[in-house]
Every structure is written in structure tokens, then in C-alpha cells.
Computed example of a mutant assay.
Amino acid sequence: GNYAGDVLNFGAAAERLRGQGIDARLLAVTDDVASAAPDDAGRRRGVAGDLLVFKIAGAAAEAGLDLDAVMAVAERANRATVSFGLAFDGCTLPGQQTPLFTVEKDQVALGLGIHGEPGIASQPLAPAADLARLLLEPLLAERPAGHGGRVAVVLNGLGRTAAEELFVLWHHLDTLLTDHGLTPVAPELGQFVTSLDMEGCSLSLTWLDDELEALWLAPADTPALRRGTVAPPETHRRMTAAPDRVAAVAQGSAASRAAAPCMADMIAEVAKALAGAEAELGRIDAIAGDGDHGQGMARGSAAAAAAARQAVTDGAGAGSVLALAG
């Protein structure tokens, strides 16, 4: 999904793979129509459209397309996918006593991100028929010119929305889709792209062409989505996992080795400070983000401190201590 942390971490993973001679590409899903205007779609967040885009991309890979072709299909699916969501109540991060955000009683929040990022408005809670129109209208506004009307559809619960409620909403959505000349292709209802215990739902559409429809309908066998029958996979060569740290580190000069413990101590002090600030960093982040910045900083700095200590134990010089901590 197109979030700063996702792009940062997956980008770093792609760089590491390319450094090992493995071709790797980055695709950030941008389906959330509430988060940016159509002419600025590259800034949109990725929400439940992730499911549609990744399903289609996975089917393209399974069909044997090469990486360039898979990437082209995935990018086309991303451009063809739109989503809009609403929430009735917020989510609570593990270990926290209060929700990341709250929605006022008898109100519905519109356009929130899946981590609780700010939405665009709130309004009084309405009957299911009105909520169905509320979800669908922003997506209809982005129907491609001349599109034939066949759409992949996902009505997604955010974690704490009962299946019965989703089916009541789908009853109205199905009628609205037909009224607007749209034909749902293998629609999916359920908890797919969730946010812990958030209460709410989102609607996603992919404007299908012949190739995208075939890939959307292709068999799949995953814990969250099963479709058709998937042949047993061939036995693949087991890849040897890279070690978490190098077996031998550069020893460095005597002066460098003497400075290494000081480097490790400095990193440990930073980790200590960030652990102490974890709750406050999370509170600040929750105002405009997903409230996990404190956890990420505490975990990351603790891992860096542990790696630095191990490097000193292994006899590393200052440069190696910093590199391994990094």
C-alpha cells in the first residue's frame, strides 16, 4: 500500500535483492479515492484494492508471464482499481489502553485510511441503502470513458464488521450496480484488508478488460481467498537463507577496535531513549498516521543496539559496528 513506511521498507528490500543480482520491482497500490484527486492519483493510499491488484498480479506470475509483463499487468490493474471506505469506530493497537481514534456516537467517518489515517468528513449514521450509495458514488465518478461495465468487486470489512451487516449492505449495492449498468464479476464479501478491531467497511472496484477479468477469475489458494482448484506445486529447490549477520567481521586497526565499544554504547543510549519515548512517539503519530511510530523506533533501535554489541563481541572495528547496526 502507498504509505511512507511500506514504500521505505519494501524499497529497501528491493535494493537488497538487486544488490544480490535479483531483479526486483516496487509497486505501491493507490486505490483510495478519498486521499487524493484523480489528477494526483500517485499520492493516493493503498487500501482494500490491494486484494484485487495482488490477486491479478499473482495470477499473471502463476501463468508464466515474465517480470516485465507481470509488472505491466499489475500497474494496469492498479490504475483500474478504486476504493472508498467508512468507519463507525476506531481500532486499538496491541498494548494500548485507548483506541487510536474514535468516531462520535451515531456518526460515520468517511474516507479513513486502513490504519486510521484522517478521513475527509463525518456525518450522521444512515440506513444501509444510503450507505451503499455513499460508498459507490465516489467510485462511479471515476468510471473510465467507454468502459463496458464488467467490474471485480470487493466489499471489505475492516475487522469488526459482522458478515450479516456486509450482506445487508451488499443487497443494496447489487441493485445499485445493476442500475448503473455494471456487472459484478465474482464479487467477494468478507474481512480481507482489516485494521485490527476497527468497525467499518470499504468498497473496491476494478474496471475489468478481458485480460484482467481472466486473471481475477484464475484459481487461487490462500488462507484468505480461495477460488477454483489449484494444482499441487512442483517441488522447488530450497533456497539457503542468508545469515542475519556476517560470520566474520573486519577486524580493523587497534584504534578502531578500541573505539568500537564506545560506538556500541552510543547506539545503546539512543535505543534506551527511544524505548522511553515509545508511548509519546505513538501518540504524536496517531494524530496524522497509524500510531506505530513509537513501536517501530523502539524495535529498530533495540535491534541496532543488539547488532552493535554482537559486533564488538566478534572483534569488529568501529566501521563494522556502525555498518552492522545499520
Rank of each mutant, 00 (worst) to 15 (best):
S204F: 02
D39N: 14
D174I: 01
I287K: 13
G252V: 03
S122E: 11
V47P: 08
G282C: 15
A12L: 15
L100P: 01
A61N: 05
H172V: 04
G190T: 04
A259W: 05
A259C: 09
A260Q: 07
D314G: 11
A325V: 02
L215I: 03
I56L: 08
L100A: 07
G64P: 08
E62Y: 11
R25P: 04
D40H: 11
S122I: 11
A214V: 01
P38E: 05
Q310C: 06
V154T: 07
A132T: 11
D174C: 03
P184T: 00
V82R: 14
V70Q: 08
M266S: 15
H180E: 04
E280M: 12
Q251H: 06
A273D: 14
S301N: 00
P223E: 05
A128I: 12
L281S: 08
S301Q: 00
A260E: 04
D23I: 15
Q310R: 06
F88P: 02
S202I: 06
A28Q: 08
A318C: 07
L274I: 11
I284T: 12
L100V: 09
R238H: 05
V312R: 01
A241W: 00
G181D: 02
M198V: 03
D32I: 08
A316I: 04
L281H: 12
S35Y: 11
M266P: 06
A224W: 06
A279M: 11
V270S: 15
E62A: 14
S301L: 01
V82G: 13
T98C: 00
R237N: 00
L52V: 08
A279Q: 12
N9G: 13
L131T: 15
V53S: 01
P38H: 10
D314V: 09
H180W: 03
A286T: 14
A218C: 11
T30R: 15
D106L: 12
